[in-house]
Simulated scan of single mutants.
Amino acid sequence: MKVGRVVPAPAELAFHHLGLAVASPEAAFLYLASIGYTAGNSAFDPIQRVNLAMRHHPLMPDVEVIWPSDGPSPIDKLVQRTGSMIYHLCYACPNAELVLESLAASGVEIVPVGSPAPAVLFGGQKVSFHHIAGFGLIEMLETGAQV
């Protein structure tokens, strides 16, 4: 296992939400509501071909519920095998490229998954997905402002 030089996380990086991939959202919505989550924005993402719905809680992390649409999507195989799973962690930052460069400088292996694109659920702010070796999928929500 390669361990790189430890570099402090960039101050402008903030946890935003976790993404929950599900085959169908009803049971996830019921569970989240039963523990105090309330509905937020929802949308269809034509780029990834998935349905999205945010859930918010006053004390716990936000949850983005993601489920397939009619066409092929990045989560199809995941939800066919598992029914549901934590799909990604999302971080907000003013400049994703700078954060990713900092992580890479610390020895973290990062593989981009697709190209940055506007996020329909987040007002068109740019998002990008990256596979982090030994960790999993992260989403970077680029805010353009200090977080």
Rank of each mutant, 00 (worst) to 15 (best):
L20I: 09
A28E: 07
M54L: 14
P61W: 08
T38E: 09
Q48N: 11
D70C: 05
H16A: 15
V50H: 04
D45A: 07
A33Q: 13
A23P: 07
K77P: 00
P10F: 03
P8W: 06
P8N: 13
Y31E: 04
A33L: 01
D62I: 03
L20P: 07
Q48I: 03
R55S: 09
M60C: 00
G40K: 04
A39M: 09
F29G: 01
H57M: 11
S24V: 08
E26A: 13
I35K: 12
S69P: 02
A43S: 13
D70V: 11
V6W: 04
P72R: 15
M60I: 02
W67N: 05
L78S: 08
E64C: 03
Y37M: 05
A11T: 11
Q80Y: 05
A43R: 14
L78F: 02
I75T: 10
T38S: 14
L52C: 07
L78N: 06
P61R: 12
P68I: 10
H56T: 09
V65W: 01
M54P: 00
T82N: 13
D70Q: 13
D70Y: 02
P58A: 11
H17F: 04
H16S: 15
I66P: 04
V65D: 01
F44W: 06
D76P: 07
E26R: 09
Y37L: 07
A33T: 03
G36E: 08
D45Y: 02
A27M: 09
L78Q: 08
